[in-house]
């Protein structure tokens, strides 16, 4: 006798984004898109999610592949972590993304988990939301009728909540080419069992010829209900030479945008996450500055 852990569901495997969107509309919120499934399936086994229908995107060719151009990378939503970490194009154009992908979970999970699934799920402890925020990515979506481009800054809305509409499919993640003299880093405190980020910080720092910071992107995951940019910190970096004390002072404000809503769970208290946000922001910014030189 086999114990069925999930609630019953209907299963379908469309071939196109339009068909996937049509199915989402048909079930009116009762269906879930299945990408790699490495967040959704565990939730279904715990019956924290019980969708009426699963729409498996593994057969949709237009969601696959990494394209490199002069303006940057276009990454299909169904690209796996393993494909990201092992892609020469990603390693060259967005080493931050390749490095962060290599830090996700373990080899088996990276074989199946996808970038599109990760960002659409908006798990507060996932690595890639912070990375795509720091890279100023554009999220391309489609429905049966139309597509739109969502700037990543408007994509993550809340705990497990994004700007995606009910019948909308995330199709590609576009990562703009980085300016010259830009250094990047993603550093996290990793949960020992799952390797989810207790706190993770992505930093993208551009230096001018005189060593003055021209542009800064710092994004935090794990600490609050969803990944956010640390704009207060960014403002304290731009226009300055990034001596260690400048970085430290800026990093002290890295939790400003999360203030009052730090996560508290079995892994870490809110106060601990707040403290680690500052520590890991300092480390990530310092490493990014070192790479930029």
């Amino acid at each position: 006798m086999v114990t069925m852990t999930s609630a019953p569901f209907e299963y379908m495997r469309p071939k196109t984004v339009a068909e996937a969107s049509r199915l989402l509309s048909k079930y009116g919120g009762g269906a879930k898109l299945l990408a790699g499934g490495h967040s959704l399936v565990p939730l279904m086994k715990l019956r924290l999610a019980s969708p009426q229908a699963l729409i498996d995107l593994s057969g949709v060719g237009e969601l696959k592949g990494i394209n490199s151009s002069a303006s940057g990378l276009s990454i299909g939503a169904m690209t796996t972590y393993h494909e990201l970490e092992s892609s020469v194009e990603v390693q060259r154009a967005a080493p931050l993304l390749a490095d962060a992908a290599s830090q996700v979970a373990d080899a088996q999970v990276r074989n199946f988990g996808t970038i599109g699934g990760a960002v659409s799920h908006s798990d507060p402890s996932a690595d890639l939301p912070a990375v795509v925020l720091a890279l100023d990515a554009v999220m391309k979506t489609a429905t049966q009728r139309a597509g739109r481009d969502i700037p990543v800054e408007r994509f993550f809305k809340d705990f497990l909540t994004t700007a995606l509409r009910q019948n909308e499919v995330l199709t590609r993640i576009e990562v703009p080419k980085l300016p010259a003299n830009t250094g990047t880093s993603y550093i996290k405190q990793s949960n020992k069992a799952s390797h989810y980020a207790v706190v993770g910080v992505a930093a993208v720092i551009t230096l001018g010829a005189d060593g003055v910071c021209e542009r800064a992107r710092v994004a935090i995951t794990g600490a609050g209900p969803y990944a956010v940019r640390a704009k207060r910190t960014e403002r304290m970096l731009v226009g300055k030479k990034l001596a260690p004390n400048v970085i430290r002072n800026a990093a002290k404000r890295a939790g400003a945008e999360i203030s009052g809503s730090f996560n508290e769970d079995v892994h870490a208290s809110a106060g601990y996450r707040e403290a680690m946000t500052q520590v890991f922001a300092e480390r990530a910014i310092t490493a990014a500055v070192a790479n930029a030189r």
């Binding site: 999930s6 299963y11 495997r13 299945l34 499934g37 490495h38 399936v41 565990p42 086994k45 699963l54 498996d56 593994s58 393993h82 080899a107 088996q108 999970v109 074989n111 199946f112």
Partner: peptide, 15 residues
């Protein structure tokens, strides 16, 4: 051809 934790995949996905 890829290692996977088979407790985290539905059999229908292997069709």
């Amino acid at each position: 051809g890829k290692a996977v934790k088979s407790c985290t995949v539905f059999a229908v996905q292997a069709d």
